[in-house]
Design a protein around this nucleic acid. Structure first.
Lengths: 324, 324
DNA sequence: CTGTTAGCGCCTTCAC
DNA sequence: GTGAAGGCGCTAACAG
C-alpha cells in the first residue's frame, strides 16, 4: 500500500508540493491548466490526502464524536441516527464511540477527546454517574462538549434538552381536559430531568386547582390528605413501564376508578388499564440538530459565549388508543 | 484551550523534547530521576499527546472502524457491541461509522478509510449492494478490511461468518429427529449466505433420504412431485418472520398437518403454528472476536497472506417453547 | 501565477 | 543518559 503523497504528484507534474496543495484546494490564483493537470495526476495516481497531516497543521480534524454507553435501547439508537443525520449538513464527520458503561473504556474515550483527532463531542451522559471528573476536566479546558437529553447539575457544559417543564404542563393539562380529577405524579426525583417534569406538572395542577400526589417509587402508595373529587385519576410518568408497574402494584385501590395515563416518548400499544392515554413525544431529531449546531459553533468560535441550555419543544401531544 | 506540547514540558524541565518523548514512552536508557521529573511535569501541565502528530510519524493511528448502515436492528447493535468489546483487548480503539444506506455518506466514509486516520475496518456490507466499487478499490490497495456475517462473491476481502452449511445441516437434522417427514426450505437465494444454507439443508436431507422443496419467495406454494410420507412438516428459514409469513400465506394447505419450524438466531416467543421450534443461534461474539483478531493481524502484518474466510460454529441448537 | 521557507507535534536515528 | 537534526505530509506566509 505505497502511500501516494502530494510530492508524488508534484514530481510527476514538475511542480512544487505547495502548488499541488493549492490546486487541490481549488485556490483561485492557480492557472486553470495547471490545476487540471494536478487534479488529473492525483486521480490517476489514486492520491488520498493524509488527514493526520492535515489535522496536525490545521489544528482541526473535522471530526465530531457521539459518546454514549450503548445503542441497544430504542432511545439511544434513535438519538444516534438523529445526530448522525444532523451532522450530514455540516463540514464534520461524526463517529460513534461506545463505552458500554465500562469505567476504563469511558476514561479512555474521554481522554482521547483532547488529543487532536476529535474537535468536539455530543455526550449522552451515563445514567448513574458518580464521578464526572473527566467531563469536568474537559469543560475546564474549554473543550467543546454538548450534552443531550440530560444535563448535569454544576457541570459547565451546554445541554440540549426537551423543555421538560413545558411538556409536563401540557401533558397534565391534556389529562385534566380528559376529565382527570386527581393526579399521581410518578416522575420520581432521580435526576434533574424528572425533577423538572414533576415541577411542571405541579405548577400546572396548582393553577388548575386540581389535587395531586408525588410518588418517589412505584412501590409507594399515594395519600389523599383529604378525599379527592370524584372522577378519573391520572397517572403521569416518564415512561409507559412506570405507569404499568404502578397500576399493577396498586391494582386493588385502582380497580373501581377510571384511569387516564400520560407519559413521554411512546406508548407501545400494550393492553392498558387506562381508558385514555396521552403521549408527549420528545423531538429527538430537533434535539440532535440543535446539539450538532451548538457543537459546531463551539468548535468554530471557541471564545464566543455559549448558551448553557437549549430547550426543544415536544411534538404535539398524541392520544394513543391502547389495544385490549 | 492552549495546547500543551512536549516542548512545554521540555522547557519547564530544562530538557530537550527528544528526552521528554523518550521519558514518556518509558525508554530504558533514561535516568529514572529525569523520567520522574518529566512525567510529573506532564501531569501537572495536563499534557495530552497529539495523536495526529503521532499518527503522522508512525503511519498508524491505532484506530479501527466498524462500518455499517444503522444500529436499529437487533442483529446490528449486537454485532456493534460485540465488535466494540472484542477491540477492548487490543491496542486499538474502535469507532462506529454509520452510513444509513445513504450512497453519498457511504462513499464519504469509505473514502476516509485510506486517509491515515483509520488503520482498518470491519465492514457489515449493505444488504442490497449494486456496486461495491469502493470496497474493491480499497481491497486492491491492500487496505485492511474484514467483512462480517456476509461475504461478497468476487471481492478479495476476508470474511468472518457462521459456518452456514454446517449450521443448516444441524438444524435440518434436529427437525428430522423431531419427526419431520417433509421439508420446506424458505432460505431463498438473495445472497451467498442463504444459498449456502439451502445447500447445507439439501445435502443433509439427501443423506437422510427425506423429501424437500425449495421456495424462493414466501408467496410461492410448494410442490410435492410425488406425495410425501405422512408426518410433521418442517419449515426452515433464516428468520422467524419468514416462517410466520409463509404459514400465514399457506394457512389452508397447512391446516391439517403438524408443523416443525427451524430458524436462525432467535424466535421471539410469539404465537406459533408449529408444535416444535428449533433455533440455530449464531455466535456473534465469536464472529466479532475473530473479525477483530484478523483485522489487527492484517494491519500489523500487511504482507502475510490472509485467510479468505473464517467460519464460526453456531452455539448449540435450542428448542424454543412458543407461547400460545 | 508559482516556488521557497517554515512549522504543526512527535519520534527516531545519529552523535556526544 | 541526553542533545541535535531530520522527517512524517500538508498548509500558509512570504517572495518573486
Amino acid at each position: 500500500m505505497a502511500r501516494i503523497t502530494q510530492r508524488d504528484i508534484a514530481q510527476l507534474c514538475g511542480l512544487d508540493t505547495s502548488t499541488v496543495s493549492r490546486s487541490l484546494q481549488g485556490d483561485e490564483r492557480i492557472h486553470e491548466a495547471t490545476r487540471a493537470r494536478v487534479v488529473d495526476a492525483a486521480r490517476r495516481l489514486g492520491y488520498r490526502p493524509n488527514l493526520a497531516a492535515r489535522a496536525l497543521v490545521g489544528g482541526r480534524a473535522q471530526v465530531l464524536w457521539l459518546v454514549l454507553a450503548s445503542v441497544g435501547a430504542t432511545a439511544d439508537w434513535r438519538t444516534t441516527h438523529a445526530v448522525t443525520s444532523a451532522t450530514e449538513s455540516t463540514d464534520y464527520d461524526l463517529f460513534v464511540a461506545l463505552h458500554g458503561n465500562d469505567e476504563a473504556r469511558y476514561e479512555r474515550l474521554l481522554a482521547r477527546l483532547a488529543q487532536g483527532l476529535v474537535d468536539g463531542a455530543v455526550v449522552l451522559p451515563r445514567r448513574h454517574v458518580s464521578d464526572e471528573r473527566l467531563l469536568r476536566e474537559l469543560a475546564l479546558r474549554d473543550y467543546p462538549l454538548v450534552l443531550v437529553d440530560v444535563w448535569i447539575d454544576g457541570l459547565p457544559v451546554p445541554a440540549v434538552t426537551t423543555d421538560n417543564d413545558g411538556a409536563s404542563r401540557l401533558l397534565a393539562r391534556r389529562c385534566a381536559e380528559a376529565g382527570a380529577r386527581g393526579f399521581v405524579l410518578l416522575y420520581g426525583d432521580n435526576n434533574p430531568v424528572v425533577r423538572e417534569r414533576t415541577a411542571g406538572a405541579r405548577a400546572e395542577l396548582a393553577a388548575l386547582g386540581l389535587p395531586w400526589t408525588e410518588i418517589g417509587s412505584v412501590d409507594d402508595a399515594w395519600q389523599e390528605t383529604e378525599p379527592w373529587p370524584d372522577g378519573p385519576l391520572a397517572m403521569l410518568a416518564s415512561a409507559q413501564e412506570t405507569v404499568l408497574a404502578y397500576c399493577r402494584r396498586n391494582a386493588g385501590r385502582l380497580a373501581d376508578r377510571r384511569l387516564v395515563a400520560g407519559c413521554f416518548d411512546e406508548w407501545r400499544g400494550e393492553p392498558s388499564p387506562a381508558d385514555r392515554v396521552f403521549v408527549a413525544p420528545q423531538d429527538h431529531d430537533a434535539i440532535a440538530r440543535q446539539a450538532v449546531r451548538l457543537l459546531a459553533r463551539r468548535v468554530e468560535c471557541p471564545n464566543e459565549p455559549t448558551e448553557r441550555r437549549v430547550m426543544v419543544q415536544i411534538k404535539p401531544i398524541e392520544e394513543v388508543v391502547p389495544r385490549f
